[in-house]
Design a binder for these strands. Structure first.
Lengths: 369, 369
DNA sequence: TTGTACGCGTTATCAT
DNA sequence: ATGATAACGCGTACAA
């Protein structure tokens, strides 16, 4: 009877129940604290009978371990951080779910941190807040402009993995996807549909992923031996090009007629293009092939389905956690992980035969040359 | 020199840097540990000179507090949990950001937990996982079917706030929005546009929020003295009604012609309706008024802008945190919070005069009776 | 296989 | 205003 009666620190009206500790279990089971600890941590060197007895008593007393005490003792918090970009975006949910699920499967919790929008606040977060966080590692979705090196988390010992980064930040392991190859594939599919005047729109070289997708477009043209036509490329600083710009792209006659296909760098842009196409009397999938990138569920409803490239955000989230834990457990290695995109063929790229073979579109505006 | 040299528990190649503690600071500053603690915790009863000295030394030594030790001692983790529904949904990002921001402003961290899809796993989560979590409270977005009472988190002492719940779970404080009033308002706006044959679609009575929106539709009809016409209501079990169902709704002639407006219970449904409308040659905002609910940014691009009801998910997230902390600090009160929706007028409900006055649509299919 | 003894870093209590 | 001391709950040497 070494334990004194502790008063409840919660609100007065709450019953004065004090926490069950391993000491309580030890006393009730007639063993010592370390033995209880060994049982609870699934360690082998315990007699089966003792084990059963302890587990029984623990369940009976409703024992709940104290995360704080464990963290203090072990130095690990059993938690990961997830750094989110300042601007919310629907796809982030998938990242959050992927990271959380993989973490949960490995008995880890996930803390989320939306980054402030202002640069100074970002710096403060990285230098002041980050090191104090009760996390063992960090999965970071950073704006391309933000630099963060390992040393930025000096004393917490936290390790870091960058999400969707292509080696922009030297020394930081990252998880990426096949932005470039994904667009290359989609161009190939359009070519199989008989498209020859394939346009591209979206993003600028500032955005690393947009640049990669643009290069995939160039790859695709090259694969098919198609010429590069500047008027068929619309790259804009805005998230989504203006209606006027899109209209100009869709009606650019040089050199051999208007585009018979438009590859958008992400689904929202494809949505906008589809809208303008409707205005022009062009129905995506019938008169014009149209593709997106990301495979956002929100746009699935349009055009009887938008053909797009699935970006595996959820799987990338999972991969980030695996990579991070690998680093935490075995130290930093050559690291990095690539999760492949895949083509999702729906209706907006044109008709298909019963066996899935792409068929040509029947564009009323098409000038066969 | 009471401190012994502690070896680094990290990887061998890491430099053997040991953590700076308040004991180190105390020694270097020539004061005692409690004094350092007082300074670091901004408590008043410290001499200015001492304070400056301690702060100086702490900065110099790069002191970082140990969250585990603090949690052990205080019994508070400085973290909140955010329970997410099994199915990801774009709007959840706003909730996550709202909760995180408000929490960060109050020096709290946020842990996210997507709920498993299977009922048994949900039960296990509530009974087994939840009590062990290093959190002080929980904001819960639960499927309507899931029950969770205060006692479900017995030993962690965590308190709980339900998100977007309308008192379904007795005893649990909640944050809600004005689903019903929001739709009532939008119907009123359509009436101002001259619409008289207003249809409604989306959801069933199973979904509490969908039911509330349906009732708002009925309120709106009643306000305007318009009759309830069963053929103008399409409520479906699916997330989004089928194209066939929507087509039937849009072409229902009884008793006085097809609908001149469609109120969708959420934006995705409005998107689908808009798509079918286009197929029928009806352009939203010109030939047919169309409204949504939620104000998802993804659909903003369509129809030159979808008139909709903004659901303040971010603000609701913030309110949840405020309510939860209120409960943590001062005990449970009469609680609950309501964050109002507001109407977002764009183009899909019809034209407006320069001063914003709603103008009537010119529907070619309209039979004035 | 099990028990003894101690320390992790912090804050609360009390005394000065 | 400050210091000595103890305690939070757990894990881990080391001894038995």
């Amino acid at each position: 009877m070494t334990r004194t009666w502790r008063k409840d620190t919660a609100h007065p009206e709450a019953p004065p129940r004090s926490r069950t500790t391993i000491a309580d279990i030890a006393e009730a089971a007639g063993v010592s604290k370390p033995t209880v600890s060994r049982v609870l941590n699934q360690r082998g060197d315990v007699a089966p009978a003792t084990r059963r007895k302890v587990e029984e008593v623990a369940a009976e007393l409703g024992y709940v371990p104290s995360p704080g005490a464990r963290a203090l003792r072990t130095g690990r918090h059993g938690a990961l951080g997830l750094l989110l970009p300042p601007e919310p975006w629907g796809g982030l949910v998938d990242v959050v779910y992927g990271v959380s699920e993989e973490a949960a499967a490995r008995q880890m919790n996930v803390m989320v941190f939306p980054l402030p929008a202002e640069r100074e606040a970002q710096r403060r977060f990285a230098t002041t807040t980050l090191p104090h966080l009760p996390i063992d590692g960090l999965v970071a979705l950073m704006p391309d402009g933000m630099l963060l090196h390992r040393g930025a988390i000096p004393l917490s010992g936290a390790r870091i993995v960058a999400f969707d980064d292509r080696g922009i930040r030297p020394g930081i392991p990252y998880v990426e996807t096949t932005n470039r190859e994904g667009v290359r594939d989609v161009v190939g599919h359009l070519v199989a549909h008989g498209c020859r005047r394939i346009a591209f729109t979206g993003g600028t070289a500032e955005l690393a992923f947009a640049q990669a997708r643009y290069e995939g477009y160039l790859d695709g043209l090259r694969d098919a031996g198609l010429p590069y036509v500047p008027d068929r490329v619309l790259r804009s600083d805005d998230d989504v090009p203006s209606e006027v710009e899109i209209r100009r792209l869709l009606t650019a006659e040089e050199p051999d007629g208007p585009p018979d296909a438009v590859v958008a760098a992400w689904d929202e842009i494809a949505t906008a293009v589809g809208h303008v196409a409707y205005e022009l009397g062009l129905r995506p999938g019938r008169d014009l092939a149209l593709t997106g990138f990301d495979d956002r569920p929100e746009v699935e409803l349009m055009f009887n389905g938008l053909t797009t490239v699935h970006q595996p955000l959820r799987e990338m989230g999972q991969a980030s956690v695996r990579l991070l834990l690998e680093i935490l457990d075995h130290g930093p290695g050559p690291g990095n992980a690539t999760v492949p995109t895949h083509l999702v063929v729906r209706e907006s790229c044109g008709p298909h035969a019963a066996d899935g073979t792409p068929l040509p579109l029947k564009s009323p505006l098409q000038n066969e040359s």
